[in-house]
Design a protein around this nucleic acid. Structure first.
Lengths: 205, 205, 205, 205
DNA sequence: AATGAATGAGACTTCATTCAT
DNA sequence: AATGAATGAAGTCTCATTCAT
């Protein structure tokens, strides 16, 4: 009773790791079973299908990131402050566990073939928080009135691209040491990003 | 003579389309052969392996985008102007043919498992142009001195994320019509992006 | 006390239904457990194996049909009357519960791979009654002397084929409405069958 | 070129044998490939799926039986003669190659889950010939007017049951030698069957 | 009596690749 | 240059069965 679902959790955890690393198609159930030291059939016992397992992984990853951001962003705070917090929270959480952004990035590259409605719905909630912040800022007059929807793409796109590309950049620096300056890790990415975006949004005069 | 290699070109074109849409793993040689109305063995005759075909596709896609951008960006122009041209060129070309950004996006999600050295080298050239512009701007004093490498991630990340997600956003609008405001297509993406980035970079002291 | 083994009975009943509908190989223990609202392991607790469960189902189905026919056919009656009763009883019982003829039909198609000795022995008893009737008729002189064993095949074969094909004929009528006349349900099948067989057997000289 | 499709034919032949012996579910692609000395993937190359292979087998088996019967039955002959020929032809052909009746028998037991529309359509043609004969007989007055559709079930049911049960009866005789008299092979089955049916149908008034 | 968890074998199917012509 | 045939490895999934409680 105490160790109930130990294996189930282990499967989910391994699936998360492997799906994040390889994507839906390249990940194999064999590999996941091996990693979880479980029988392959047990995965089907708990999750019914690869699709389902993938959804379960994504849902839990989205929930995690949503809960984290939602916990950090204070509804009552000023839009500027809230935007800063959102960017930081999104970055920190995605940096800690890249499952969500990796899968999202790849799925977006693939027209989202494997994203279920449920997953997409939850994903929209994560974006919704950011959207709420910007809208509030525009209403309150602290942000420019222009089409600010692009901020969403800047924030998510930049953070995803930056974090996902870490391993690739490492590989590149080794192969092309003379181009290392192009590939260095950056400091304070969320802060820098926030500053640029804020300047761009600010209604200065 | 001119029309020689008609089949080879057709294969390359189809491979491009299918790899872009589905990614390396999900694309199958059968599908490519079918689309190119060619025999599967012929693909091997011309390209030796799937890996090789994928590289050929990527190389040609990168070459295209590089040539286009390189043709637009004038070395002698001011950094501000050059940045604007770069963003526009990258956007327009990627919008016309999403092969490169789709594959790039997915590969970045996957730690770049399928990117050969040759492909990565060429990719660095595309980034190099942008880097040159920024560096020049910093040297000339028109851009802030702070760590401006992030601009690269903002430009590539935002454009890729925006363009790649078009089909997904369409699907989402259908499934979640009440959230359509979150998903609308934007106007003048390159212009908006440029303005925000420029404001952020500008040395307005 | 009476209600003891409620679950066991439920399992047997569901197994009967499912084996009849799908046959040995296509029926799954999962499906049976689901239908019986029981745990799969419980089936093994009661019946030891799929084979065993199948045998149990068959034995009970045969017993039912045997008891029914045996109860109707009167040893003392005339062969003609007895034959009529046999056909009717066989038909009525098989029509009420097609488990036996469905499984029999399929097993005969498959060389009887799943029929245990015990099952086959009981099956012979069902046939034995019919055989006894015919033999008595021949002995008494009311039936032709020729090789009348074929009557057995006519009776069992016709009834099985007619009853088992009911669902298929329904499907066919929907797909091929213009051939409906070929597929209509018949009235008084046992009576018609009896008349033809009797005419054929009768010693009318 | 001369030995083109040798393997394809071999696959079809083996599939026929194995499907006939074991039925759709119990037959495995591995077994078929082994028997045909072919690679399993080759079966899919030619037939796309197990379902398809099964249909191909059935279609060819039905065609064979249809062509044989159609070749024997003469449209111009008297209904009585035609009926005799039909029964004989059906019996002889089914005796030579039991693929069709075995599969049919089992599928009828299983509600015809694996029978495609095309297969069912062809099967109706085989029955159609018999139906035509009887109808003509009724029209011409040589057969009784009563519902004679049952003749179809008698003919097909009896022959199928008799022929399919041959191996089972053999097994039974070994296990139950004292009941051998019940299980002996019959002589002149088609003739006996014809005589009984004819008597039953004849308009002897 | 009853159950959730676990397993190994095997089924269908796909796919990149090669061979012979 | 071009093609149909052939292959081996691997992938997803199912299923009868057993174990521990």
């Amino acid at each position: 009773m105490m160790r109930m679902r130990k294996k189930k959790d282990s499967i989910l955890k391994c699936a998360k790791k492997i799906f994040a690393r390889k994507g839906y198609d390249s990940a194999t159930m064999d590999e996941i079973a091996l990693c979880a030291r479980s029988n392959k059939a047990l995965i089907y016992y708990y999750f019914k299908s690869k699709d389902n397992l993938f959804s379960a992984v994504l849902l839990s990853a989205i929930d995690e990131i949503y809960d984290y951001i939602d916990g950090k962003v204070d509804d009552t705070s000023e839009p500027e402050e809230a935007l800063k917090v959102y960017i930081e929270a999104f970055f920190i959480q995605a940096n800690k566990d890249d499952t969500f952004i990796r899968i999202l990035t790849r799925e977006i590259g693939s027209i989202g073939a494997h994203l279920s409605d449920k997953v997409m719905g939850k994903f929209l909630r994560v974006l919704g928080i950011l959207d709420g912040i910007i809208e509030k800022g525009v209403r309150k007059g602290c942000f420019v009135k222009k089409d600010v929807k692009i901020v969403h793409f800047i924030v998510i796109g930049t953070v995803s691209y930056y974090l996902c590309s870490v391993p690739l950049r490492k590989r590149l620096s080794k192969r092309f040491p003379n181009k290392g300056y192009l590939l260095k890790e950056l400091r304070n990415v969320p802060e820098e990003l926030f500053e640029i975006v804020l300047k761009g949004l600010k209604n200065n005069g």
